[in-house]
Amino acid sequence: MSSIFRLLDIIDLQARAKLKAEASRLYLSYLWWVLEPMLYVLVFYIVFETLLNRGGPNFVFFLMCGKIPYLWLNKSIVNSGGALFENRGLIGRIDVPKIIFPYITLQEMLYKQWVGFLVLFATALYFDSSITLNWLWLIPVIVVNYLVLVVPSLIAALLVTWAQDFRILIQMGMLFLMFVSGIFWDINDIQNEFWRDFLLTANPLAFLIDSYRKILMYNQAPDLIHLAWLALAFAIMIVIMHRIYELLRYRLTRLVLEA
């Protein structure tokens, strides 16, 4: 048990050290955490409100509800890909469970995401919604969102360690995901009921984005049964991934050291 706490300690320690190191490389340092999501808002504003004059007054807000959770997922998966190679130094010195390395990346992304969420909530307050009790539903939605992104991140770290070629496929996949998750359009606009339900079921991100919008834009509760099923399914997958990492413990070391 104490070893689990030690591993959690290491995950947190290294995630913070990485954030500190990244910040020290940039002139604007930690300010980028706020600037980056704000710049996305600005770009969307210019393109959709000023140039295209599209989608009504709070279209930018609508976009942010999709884009900010998507960016979290995207960065977590893409950055987890290189997690084992990045830590070649430690892997070559001490026999540690390899699964901690993608978790370090996930922890780093989680810290940054809080700022992203704050920008999202500020956008929500700017576009006339106010904080209601329904906002409490954000807590389970964010928790499930985290569970949902852990699984593909752990898989990405495995695949890229096995063959670097997967980096390219992962990037293609992320682009595809961006188009089928209802970031630029509302999933409820799909007329065909079968395809709408299919997308909401098959693509957890589409469901999560829709849930964020329900809470922040329309002051509604998300589909709680669907949310619970998602949590259960992804929790099981996480357990399975942990088993796989344990089985591949030595294989992964050799893959990293011989690459």
Partner: peptide
């Protein structure tokens, strides 16, 4: 294992590397 070739995360400071290593 103490080795020359590998050992550290080059993007982290010496201090942070030491702390992570010691905890491990």
């Amino acid at each position: 294992l103490l080795t020359l070739g590998l050992g550290f995360r080059t993007d982290l400071s010496g201090e942070d590397n030491v702390i992570v290593s010691l905890v491990l």
